[in-house]
């Protein structure tokens, strides 16, 4: 009876009937390997976070990095947040990431949809043009000259427009769109929907996964915007967090606290790690919200692309 019930309503996660149950040793080995991998991934994060809270003495005693702060202190965070430079840079980065990601998604989705439809006017040449940029990326100086001639130097647009659409993301999204059931789109057309309606009402709701993934790719690349900022932004007040972070971590190592005019100098290492945490947290916070789409989206793009 029991076996009959199990047969009738198999649990989706249940092992196929033909598979052997895993041995205890096998499960133990898997657990061990996974634990080690997770440990290797998480260890640097914990070290960074712990060091950012550690006291001067502990960091010196430990030789640079701390795993468990015995006397946690917020001195490093106070130090970097009082100047206003870091907070402003975070705001700049958030702005660029949000606006850039939205614009990138709009343009990428639009073009991918158009190119996914057979028989679109000049579809092939446009697609080839896009693929061409995958093979031959423009160099620093040509890009700089374009940005300059468009009058975008020293504007936030210089961080957004050059990377507005990347060929890889476009191809992945196009592949996803091409694999949507044709009948569904035709049905909508029969019901009188135009291209925009089809895109908005049919395609996009079916493509949440790929949009989430591509959106995340774009967001991460905008958030990590460093070299473009270095080249195109002369006004330091427009610098995004990654560039400011860089000056903290690489430069004036032992001077940051002095610059901030605080009497008790927190250990430079903790200041560096605090800046790393500040730079990491916002983008890490986005992941849980996208996680449910993430695996599906990546797989879809990967397999069908």
């Amino acid at each position: 009876m029991t076996s009959l019930t199990a047969f009738a309503r198999p649990r989706p996660s249940a092992r196929p009937s033909w598979a052997e149950p895993p041995t205890t040793l096998g499960r133990g080995a898997k657990a061990l390997i996974l634990t080690v991998i997770v440990g290797v991934v998480i260890f640097p994060f914990i070290t960074i976070i712990s060091t950012s809270f550690a006291s001067d003495k502990q960091i010196i005693d430990a030789g640079g990095y701390v795993l468990f702060p015995t006397h946690p202190t917020l001195a490093a965070y106070r130090a970097i947040l009082t100047g206003g430079v870091v907070t402003h840079a975070v705001v700049v980065s958030v702005g660029i990431t949000v606006v850039g990601t939205l614009l990138s998604l709009i343009t990428t989705t639009g073009l991918a949809y158009a190119l996914s439809k057979p028989g679109v006017l000049a579809g092939k040449p446009v697609l080839l043009g896009v693929l061409f940029t995958l093979l031959f990326a423009p160099g620093i100086i040509p890009t700089y000259l374009v940005i300059k001639s468009l009058g975008l130097l020293d504007t936030y647009w210089s961080l957004i427009l050059p990377g507005l659409m990347t060929a890889f993301n476009l191809i992945v999204m196009r592949a996803f769109f091409m694999n949507l059931p044709r009948d569904l789109l035709d049905a909508a057309r029969i019901d009188g929907a135009g291209d925009l309606t089809v895109l908005w009402r049919i395609v996009l709701p079916l493509s949440k996964a790929v949009i989430a993934v591509i959106g995340l790719f774009y967001a991460v690349s905008y958030w990590n915007s460093f070299f473009n900022a270095l080249l195109y932004l002369n006004d330091t007040s427009k610098w995004p967090i990654q560039l400011v972070l860089y000056t903290y971590v690489v430069k004036g190592k032992s001077l940051s606290a002095e610059q901030l005019g605080i009497q008790h100098i927190p250990p430079p290492q903790s200041i560096q790690m605090a800046v790393v945490v500040v730079a990491l947290v916002p983008i890490v916070l986005v992941y849980p919200f996208l996680q449910r789409y993430f695996t599906r989206g990546v797989l879809t793009g990967a397999i069908k692309g």
């Binding site: 100086i141 000259l145 002369n234």
Partner: peptide
């Protein structure tokens, strides 16, 4: 008006500005 470069990265910025 100061255009502030950083190191590394200064030669790239220098070259780009010269090319501009």
């Amino acid at each position: 008006n100061l255009i502030m470069g950083t190191d590394p990265g200064y030669p790239d910025k220098f070259a780009a500005i010269v090319a501009g």
